[in-house]
Design a protein around this nucleic acid. Structure first.
Lengths: 181, 181
DNA sequence: ATAACCATGTAAATGGTTACATGATTAG
DNA sequence: CTAATCATGTAACCATTTACATGGTTAT
């Protein structure tokens, strides 16, 4: 399940260009559990084309760069089905922001604010994107994953909003209890 | 903020071996937001040693392989402080399981059950590990990040338990509403 | 018996990020 | 006028994963 397989998956929903696929990872229905840049999407599409798992049609556009519209082939559908029946790997999660927050006592107040703010901003933005998606007419898989994303990102944003001050002030839950007593 | 910096961070909390660092990522306080295997930890420690950001002491053990206990140096502390004041990158998240679930309609019932079960098992295991941690005497950063992890992983496990059947049965929320009417 | 744990490491292969390269159109 | 959007791609660099290599002890 590398970028190639995900691209096949996206193309199984309909034709798309590399640029459009990137947007799905940035703002669309994949934004909360997958990311890939142009530097990995374009080479992936190139390899899929070589392997004849996709076809490519060039569309000229007036006053715009030409598009390359990719479509999945029968061979591509087979490879995708195979990839979807492998053992899924454990989620890859790597959060630099959480590492920084973990070592919050080593951060300046400025940096604490910057890190928290950026983190909250990102989660809020992804959450807003999820809210804009309407999956009510989509299949059960998309609905399930969409609901999962909503649940998680809502929890994350709420936590950051409710507990952010403790982090910024450098207060622990203990400090708060002590102050109340 | 690559594996080298995180290793420095871990070592800023006390001496450790590569094996112990790995365990922190697997089961310990980093398990919910970072992972790295031996293949990236050992080389990272090697480079830190070369750069004199850590020292290394070999400890022989009876009936056990010898340990290499690493400790952070002053230079290491400086590099760590610098790394902690950079701009944090956006979280890297890549979930093969969610990709598979997204395409649930292309999965056999067997594979749906396998994927869901593995996913739930992993989240439940990390959550159990988080519950076992007592951060009440730790600094505000660790408490904040621990609380964040608990909130997120509890939400995830609950969602999978409450909505898993819909995914296994291939039913959408719409189908359910329809059945109730 | 068998699996899991302790404990290290390297080499090859894979894969991903970043920087470079181009350039017109449109919205603010 | 400035930034963002549309649209593609490559080359160099960097990081990570996987497979290989070793082997005694302890718990089930």
């Amino acid at each position: 399940m590398d970028t190639r397989s995900i691209c096949l998956g996206v193309l199984s929903m309909g034709e798309a260009t590399g640029y459009e696929i990137k947007k799905l990872f940035e703002e669309g229905p994949f934004s909360h559990f997958y990311d890939a840049g142009y530097g990995s999407i374009y080479p992936a599409l190139g390899k899929l084309l070589e392997a004849e798992q996709v076809t490519c049609r060039v569309e000229a556009q007036a006053g715009r760069p030409a598009k390359k519209v990719y479509a999945i082939t029968d061979a591509g559908h087979e490879v995708l089905a195979g990839a979807l029946h492998e053992e899924p790997a454990i989620d890859h999660i790597r959060s630099e922001a959480l590492v920084m927050m973990f070592f919050g006592h080593k951060l300046s107040a400025d940096q604490r604010a910057r890190v928290l703010d950026k983190y909250h901003g990102h989660y809020a933005k992804v959450l807003a994107g999820l809210h804009e998606l309407d999956t009510s007419r989509e299949g059960f898989g998309r609905q399930f994953v969409h609901g999962f994303g909503l649940a998680i990102y809502e929890t994350a944003v709420r936590y950051l909003e409710e507990h952010g001050d403790e982090f910024l002030d450098g207060k622990t839950a203990n400090d708060k209890i002590g102050a109340e007593q």
